[in-house]
Simulated assay, not measured.
Amino acid sequence: MASDTRRLPLKNDPCCAAMRTLQSHGEGMMQCVIDRLTHAESGQYNATVMIYLKRYCTQCSSFALPSAEVMV
């Protein structure tokens, strides 16, 4: 039996980077993509998960990533 569990990508993952690029064109871009899904695509992709992913990838982290460390 296949598991339907999903893992969130890291904030520096290409998936999140693509989401931030999409959203940089306007706040409602992910909803626009969802609205354009065909019936078959709507069965394959969960709109609720897509909206959550948008929020997850575009929210600011409360911690600095190691690559963002400042040398003093």
Score class of each variant (00 low, 15 high):
Met1Asp: 02
Ser3Cys: 11
Ser3Asn: 08
Asp4Tyr: 01
Asp4Gln: 10
Asp4Phe: 01
Thr5Phe: 02
Thr5Asp: 07
Thr5Asn: 09
Arg6Thr: 11
Arg6Glu: 02
Arg7Gln: 13
Arg7Lys: 10
Leu8Gly: 00
Leu8Val: 04
Leu8Pro: 00
Pro9Cys: 08
Leu10Glu: 10
Leu10Val: 09
Leu10Phe: 14
Asp13Glu: 06
Cys15Val: 13
Cys15Thr: 12
Cys16Phe: 07
Cys16Ala: 08
Cys16Ser: 09
Cys16Pro: 00
Arg20Trp: 12
Leu22Gly: 01
Leu22Pro: 11
Leu22Cys: 14
Leu22Ser: 12
Leu22Lys: 10
Gln23Ala: 11
Ser24Lys: 07
Ser24Pro: 15
Ser24Phe: 00
Ser24Met: 01
Gly26Ile: 00
Gly26Pro: 00
Glu27His: 02
Glu27Trp: 08
Glu27Gln: 15
Glu27Thr: 12
Gly28Leu: 12
Gly28Glu: 08
Gly28Pro: 06
Met29Phe: 08
Met30Tyr: 05
Met30Glu: 10
Gln31Phe: 01
Cys32Ile: 02
Val33His: 13
Val33Gly: 08
Val33Asn: 11
Ile34Lys: 15
Ile34Asp: 14
Ile34Gln: 13
Arg36Thr: 15
Leu37Ser: 02
Glu41Cys: 12
Gly43Ala: 05
Gly43His: 11
Gly43Cys: 10
Gln44Leu: 15
Gln44Ile: 02
Gln44Lys: 12
Tyr45Pro: 06
Asn46Thr: 13
Asn46Cys: 09
Ala47Phe: 04
Thr48Phe: 12
Thr48Asp: 13
Thr48Tyr: 03
Val49Pro: 00
Met50His: 03
Met50Leu: 14
Met50Asp: 03
Ile51Arg: 15
Tyr52Trp: 05
Tyr52Ile: 07
Leu53Cys: 14
Lys54Glu: 07
Lys54Gln: 10
Lys54Asn: 14
Arg55Pro: 00
Tyr56Glu: 03
Tyr56Asp: 05
Tyr56Asn: 09
Tyr56Leu: 05
Cys57Leu: 05
Cys57Ile: 13
Cys57Gly: 04
Thr58Gln: 02
Thr58Arg: 12
Thr58Asn: 10
Gln59Met: 07
Gln59Asp: 13
Gln59Asn: 12
Gln59Ser: 14
Ser61Lys: 13
Ser61Cys: 09
Ser62Pro: 00
Ser62Arg: 11
Ser62Gly: 08
Ser62Val: 00
Ser62Glu: 04
Phe63Val: 04
Ala64Ile: 03
Ala64Tyr: 01
Ala64Asn: 09
Leu65Asn: 14
Leu65Glu: 15
Leu65Asp: 14
Pro66Ile: 08
Ser67Ala: 11
Ser67Trp: 03
Ala68Gln: 14
Ala68Val: 00
Ala68Glu: 12
Ala68Phe: 06
Glu69Tyr: 01
Glu69Thr: 10
Val70Lys: 04
Val70Asn: 05
Val70Ile: 11
Met71Ala: 04
Met71Arg: 03
Met71Asn: 08
